[in-house]
Design a protein around this nucleic acid. Sequence first.
RNA 1: GCGCCUUUAGCUCAGUCGGUAGAGCAUCGGACUUUUAAUCCGCUGGUCGAGGGUUCGAGCCCCUCAGGGCGCACCA
Length: 494
Amino acid sequence: MLAEKNRRLGRLDDLRARGIEPYPYRFDRTHTLREVRSEWGSLEAGTETESHVEVAGRIMLLREQGKLIFATVRDRSDEIQLFISKAVVGDEAFADISTLDLGDWVGVSGTVMTTRKGELSVKVANLSLLSKAVRPLPNKWKGLTDTDTRFRQRYTDLIVNEEARRAFEVRHAVISSFRRTLAGKDFIEVETPVLHVEAGGAHARPFVTHHNSLDMQLYLRIALELHLKRLIVGGMERVYEIGRVFRNEGISTRHNPEFTMMELYQAFGDYSEVMAIAEELIVQAARDAIGTTVVDIADTEGNLHTVDLAEPWRRARMIDLVEEKTGVAVHPSQSVDQLRKVAEDNGVRYDKHWGPGKLIEEIFEATAESSLIRPTFVTGHPVEISPLARTDRNDPFLTERFELFVGARELANGYSELNDPVEQRARFMEEQAAKEAGDAERGTVDEDYLRALEFGLPPTGGLGIGMDRVAMLLAGVHSIKEVILFPTLRPEVF
RNA sequence: GCGCCUUUAGCUCAGUCGGUAGAGCAUCGGACUUUUAAUCCGCUGGUCGAGGGUUCGAGCCCCUCAGGGCGCACCA
């Protein structure tokens, strides 16, 4: 409302005219509000203390009552009530305080007390305005629910919606838990380039950009994989990166064009070892972020399932899950025609470029994926769709690969890393051939990566985890936008 | 890209059959020295997403466009 903003801007002028700076440089507090509550939270009703504190926060509620004003202020840690008496602060200061608005930041000094009803309060001796809010806060009962405004003006969302603040606290707790767990296993955190000459490590369309002085096209990374494995060649043995990756694809409740991946690589291990790490990371993150391993997970119909993440996770081969759902045994050694028939019988549309492996994956996604509510490692992806994964030691058509599904969403992906440079070159050539045949999402030959492999990549297990999706699972939210502070949106028209 | 839904005061929402705009909170004025979403009294606040059309008359019906949501497609 323009009138409301003008009214508050007018107050700025009034304050300055009287020598009061509405935007002072600093305020030194002695306690956070949580510290006040934990130190004096058990005072009996009607207690006055001599304990002097200086606290700061934003005014969330105001209750004027004649010669008393009650204000609820909030800092990051907690809320507390200010008790402001005209008899204590004097007529002039009381008049100033009564011109405060919801949303203003204040710093106060005073003593700790409880009211007759027992509400812990700071009895204000001195109050200073720390920053004047010139826009009004959203509705104090209903908060802010308009999703457009919540995501565009995340600052407003965070001011009024406690669940929004909580989701980002969960996200932070997940990431710091991962770092602690990995530090405990002697992993080193590294940073690799975001700007890539070739966008490899995944099948996805990249964002393209341009470097002016080199006059060259660059891609924003779609995965962390290939640089991290170069570091294993270099002998770093255990590395990980938590970083933003970019995929130039659709936006949905599960997809944002930029999102956060954690990828780790461990020398001398294989896929079963990194599977165990994935399980440990996520179970520990649940304990650290929400204090329990029991979560409610929605299926695709919206029904909630209570799941204890600490129970052992199911492992099942992709081809077995397909057989379970369709009643037909499938294998990438079968002919394209045979598998196209299975696809047709199950209402799966296919592309003429697809080989047996891709057909099996699509049939899996269409028939089995939505039923994977409890944590499930789907293993044994066909070689055709896994150009960087090592062939299964027992089946040359499959790889030692897994994807983790929870709540029908893919959370993680990992494998025994292909380290034979000759085979890797052949796989890259197949990718390139498929791309040239018209399959736009296939990869290209990364010569520098092949050179690295030629120096010797030890046996290695690799793992990638979608951090946003883990945060969604543990925060219990339905949309990825709830765990990304500033999700990608169309530009606002002002 | 496609389909469905949605957009009304700063916020949360109502708006009947097409008859000329409503509530709560916030704001503003008044009362109140222990409130708790304080309460009570009174007032203010609108380009009904934008543009066009039908009609004597449109928040409402029709068309186009824009934002958002959900689903689909895409996303190994």
